[in-house]
Nucleic acid binder design. Sequence first.
DNA 1: GACTCGATTTCCT
DNA 2: GGAAATCGAGTCG
Length: 175
Amino acid sequence: MEPFDFTQDAVSCARALLGCELIVYDSLGKRGGIISETEAYTAEDAASHSYRGMTPRNEAMFMAPGTIYIYQIYGMHYCLNFVCGENDGQAVLIRSLIPTTGINLTSQNRNHRFPLTKGPANLVQALGLNKTFDKVHYTQAGLLLKQANKIVRFETSQRIGITKATDKKWRFLLV
DNA sequence: GACTCGATTTCCT
DNA sequence: GGAAATCGAGTCG
């Protein structure tokens, strides 16, 4: 299986990641699911953390394509991104998964609350990720990414929870 | 050095 | 439908 091509621009990656299966495999066990919702962020995008250049928080966004970018939001939640492009500050936010593997473990991580992996912060919690995964390449973090084996249908809409560049339809949902 | 607010979730009414 | 929870990066002075 070919590795996922993260050197594409963020919008292409966000679209291509739909339908791919994301698996986390470490000492805690194996858990994951089908990526069903993503959002694209680029360096020219006013809503992106990378818009104003590199800072200590968003340093990961300027690292190698495929690097994980996890940041804390609202003082209590974390969001998972994959770095895209050519070290130029692009990333894709993973907003939702359809659980397929290790559901017991993800349910445990979520303290048996639902939905399990819908919503960026829920997803991070369910997979047992944290900011120690920030700036680590996904292949070195125990993550597996299986490409979608068929063309998937998707819809686009404007992104969620942002106040800038809300006209861009860079949110992608699996149909 | 102090202040503001966010790529959110959850619980309450 | 609405507000609280909670904190560090980013911004401004």
